[in-house]
Amino acid sequence: MPDLGLDVLFKGKNMLRLLGGLWVAVKISIISVALSIPLGILLGIVMTWKNPIIKAVTRVYLEFIRIMPQLVLLFIVFFGTTRTLGWDVSGELASVIVFTAWGTAEMGDLVRGALISIPKHQYESSAALALSPAQTYFYIIIPQTVRRLIPLSINLITRMVKTTSLILMIGVVEVLKVAQQIIEANRMTSPNAAFGVYLVVLIMYFLICWPISMLARYLEKKWR
């Protein structure tokens, strides 16, 4: 059995340090998701409005955010704001801003899609039963939209968690950075540490994302 460098993980507080790094990434995803969902619902509703100016502005926002790689957005906020606005934005703050902007766009598009996918005859048959517009929304439209939206928003959480791995690139000390530090510190005693440590990081991300994906898939099947 070749040396896979797994021993490094059990040295000192290395495992705890890795988990601490992971928590930084997870914390940023949780904050971003928590902000994205309400903002995204608002954006989605606004996007169904008929006003041409609102339509154009939201459209451009959505298209730009979605076509740019998230890493480019991180660079723009992290490096760009410092220069042009003179703010000193920390890596963590830049990450939360970018992931919230991105999550809001994605969520907004999901909400808009769910709203316009409710067929017109649902409104009509509800009106024909003499339900008021408020009752129509409360009893007919919202339950149908929510069922469609929940699995999709859960999927958004996995995407968010995976994307937070990028914050390494703007210098935030998260799990990959900690992994690099551990590998570097043990370069002499354990030259193969890279294998064990990166494998563990891979598994950590998988253990977070996989159950969330499974939950989304389960709900999607159940509510189809």
């Binding site: 791995s165 390494l168 990959l176 891979l202 998988f206 994906s213």
Partner: peptide, 12 residues
């Protein structure tokens, strides 16, 4: 493949 980030896959 779907439940891990590309960045980590590349590092690995």
């Amino acid at each position: 493949s779907r439940n891990t980030p590309l960045l980590i896959q590349l590092f690995f």
